[in-house]
């Protein structure tokens, strides 16, 4: 499945959608496929300051636990309680209902530095 062209991507398999001075963040379809059945999601609290490439949450599947990384610097302004309550949503709707956090950007230029969809898909296919 090709990743949506209107989003930006990280090497740690998060997607980022910019909306003015905030971004919405989730994990990619490739990431959910690698993890398998997702059973638990732990997200930062609203108000938390996060820093690009630093862990800000945890995604667990039946197999293993992995970190969720912040793609950008900024302040968490919203978290998706629905994804926390029904983690399996990350398997079925990774780019949609299962968004994870919204962050107010400290430096909007950071978004431009992330990968476009075609580059991410090639990266994800050829090995992380």
């Amino acid at each position: 499945m090709a990743s949506p062209a209107d989003l930006k991507y990280t090497r740690t398999h998060e997607w980022v959608r910019r909306d003015g001075d905030t971004v919405t963040i989730g994990i990619t379809d490739h990431a959910q496929g690698e993890l398998g059945d997702i059973t638990y999601v732990e997200l930062p609290e609203v108000g938390t300051e996060v820093a690009a490439t630093q862990p800000m949450g945890i995604i667990e599947s039946v197999k293993a636990a992995t970190d969720l990384y912040a793609p950008v610097n900024g302040e968490v302004v919203a978290v998706n309680d629905k994804a926390v309550e029904t983690p399996e949503l990350l398997n079925s709707e990774p780019f949609g209902d299962a968004w994870l956090v919204k962050v107010r950007l400290q430096n909007p230029d950071q978004v431009a530095e992330l990968m476009p969809a075609t580059e991410y898909d090639a990266f994800a296919e050829h090995g992380a």
Partner: peptide
């Protein structure tokens, strides 16, 4: 044992 609240899985 069982975990009581919502949490990551014991490993």
């Amino acid at each position: 044992f069982k975990l009581v609240g919502r949490s990551g899985s014991p490993r």
